[in-house]
Design a protein around this nucleic acid. Structure first.
Lengths: 338, 338
DNA sequence: CTGAAAGCGCTTACAG
DNA sequence: CTGAAAGCGCTTACAG
């Protein structure tokens, strides 16, 4: 098996029109090289993929990076499972990091990546500003974003789910059961997926000729607490809905608890639909009707996309959405009055 | 700053009483070297920490490894959070792997580790047989085990929780409320922690002069399903307990659902206590009384222990147990009859 | 800031 | 299976 001949310092020197020692100085970050000489040499080194003699061939795909803002939710766990399993199958380890939306922790992660190989990074709902983009570009590793934040188009491959269709399906299910006072606890407004689910909810109401009651739409943060608080407020206002569509399973569990504390039963008094289909949806009492998004598959797809970029294949679409699916369990029923 | 002079092939050769080319052959894994020569040379290379000229100095603590059998439970997520945050703070990335108890996946992980640096491995409830120990020893990375499986003493530092005391506290809490028909859903029998919780349960009953009813002790697998099934069986047998202590929060949620499906309410009809204090314990309806074990702290401690081993410090105790703590929420109350 | 020369560390091709 | 010799790739010390 012929190994591609490694380019040597001498060859680089010839092409750059300098001597070997000069190339050596550039390689070893010595200060005493003219700026334009250095630039010319560095460009040639990069172009020919120069590696020093003893250095082992870089093994791409020994590691990939998975970056969350936080890993405190079961949601993150599902994505991690898919990413880890897919990467493991390709022989790569998965480096998991949580940067907590803080610049210092992001920097620490970048410093860490600089000190090793990385076959690419999967960023999960992570904000991706110009500075970070520039740094990642400098590191020359491919990047895929799962559930991107809102804002300008990233110009990067992204993976998501059919959130709009899911929001519509959840709402349609409640309409089909006979509900008309359907509340919605929306998700973090900084993420596109939240807006898509909200618009799906609106579209279903529109199509059914049900007027949107603005008092029955509130914004949560995808977590248990906000589901609890929003619902408690609705119940205290006396304008209780007969059904609640929460944009995440965790918020749906908060809705459960607010209902329980006021003596209401699910689904007898109020129907509840979640979004995600975390394992927690099955573990709740009653088991939660929800919109399944294939988070593990989204993770897998992100890894495969990184791999395709590495292999130089064209990534067909910069934005892929995997299908959502309504999973009916025991938390939804016709309204009492029907 | 003086850099310790790197040992050269020539020096190794002199010490081994062979020529430089022979050392080179050993280094480059050529076949044509006598077994005893190879061994002598390899020993010297290791002893003097030989590194080839161009090779960058190894940067320990760029990465550490965290190995689970499975990462499908929120339990794993809590450990991960602690490990990741502690490692991140030390500038290291956390490589997460799930080996699913399969030799092939374990091998794949080991192959991956061989191709990069690792500052050490935290094994979580992972079986650690002689073969794996030998391989890890060969890789020369420190190892710490969280919640070790039962069986022979590992001779490795381990991190756990005061499971026995936790089991006792959970049971005592139920006794204090007036319960005497207290069932126990035990955890995976292959883990020490399960046995310790069971023994704590027994000890509390003994101390209170309550006879152990063997029919009220069943073995689960720490998961939702087994909690559900064990409880359903008890209820079907007509010998229903007035309280259930489950050895994990996930099993406790299965207990909830079995009770709900038979029209029983928590805690009015049956009290339930879990173990772990996962986030899910707060998210359940009613919020679950449980024994908190500081899983994130256990993860942090495991990382700090790896670090201490790396730094050559003595690891004071091969076995550290962090304190558990009873957290009373809304799933426990006096028995109806009391 | 740069190159010609010397020299180090390692590997290869050959001989036995 | 091993070594003496040759040679490659790279760096260092010196000169300008």
């Amino acid at each position: 098996m012929a190994v591609a001949a490694r380019i040597t310092i001498a060859e680089i020197a010839a092409r750059a029109g300098v001597s070997a020692p000069t190339v050596s100085r550039v390689l070893n970050q010595r200060g005493d090289v003219a700026a334009d000489t250095r630039e010319r040499v560095e460009h040639l080194l990069a172009e020919h993929g120069y590696r020093r003699r003893g250095a082992p061939a870089p093994r791409p795909w020994t590691l990939i990076d998975l970056v969350f803002d936080d890993i405190d939710s079961p949601w993150a766990l599902e994505v991690l499972r898919g990413v880890e399993d897919e990467a493991h199958g390709l022989g790569a380890g998965t480096v998991v990091s949580a940067v907590h939306g803080r610049a210092a922790e992001r920097r620490r992660w970048l410093d860490n990546v600089r000190g090793r190989e990385s076959g690419g990074a999967v960023l999960v709902t992570t904000g991706l500003d110009a500075a970070l983009r520039a740094e990642l570009q400098e590191l020359r590793i491919p990047v895929v974003v799962v559930d991107p934040a809102g804002g300008a188009d990233l110009g990067l491959p992204t993976v998501g789910a059919t959130d709009w269709a899911g929001g519509r399906a959840a709402t349609q299910h409640l309409l089909d059961l006979g509900h008309t006072r359907i509340a919605h606890v929306a998700g973090r407004p900084d993420l596109w997926c939240s807006r898509a689910r909200l618009d799906g909810y609106r579209a279903a109401l529109d199509a059914a000729g049900v007027d949107l009651d603005r008092d029955l739409v509130a914004t949560g943060a995808f977590d248990y607490r906000s589901g609890f608080e929003v619902t408690s407020r609705w119940l205290a206002d006396g304008a209780a809905p007969t059904a609640v569509f929460a944009a995440s399973d965790q918020m749906a569990l908060g809705v459960y608890e607010a209902l329980r504390q006021t003596g209401r039963r699910v689904p007898d008094d109020v129907s509840v639909v979640g979004f995600d289909d975390l394992q927690e949806a099955q573990w709740s009492s009653p088991p939660l009707t929800t919109v399944r998004q294939p988070l593990d598959q989204m993770g897998r797809l992100a890894v495969r996309t990184l791999r395709r970029i590495t292999d130089g294949e064209d990534v067909a679409s910069p934005r892929v959405e995997l299908a959502t699916e309504l999973v009916v369990r025991a938390s939804t029923a016709p309204p009492r009055t029907a």
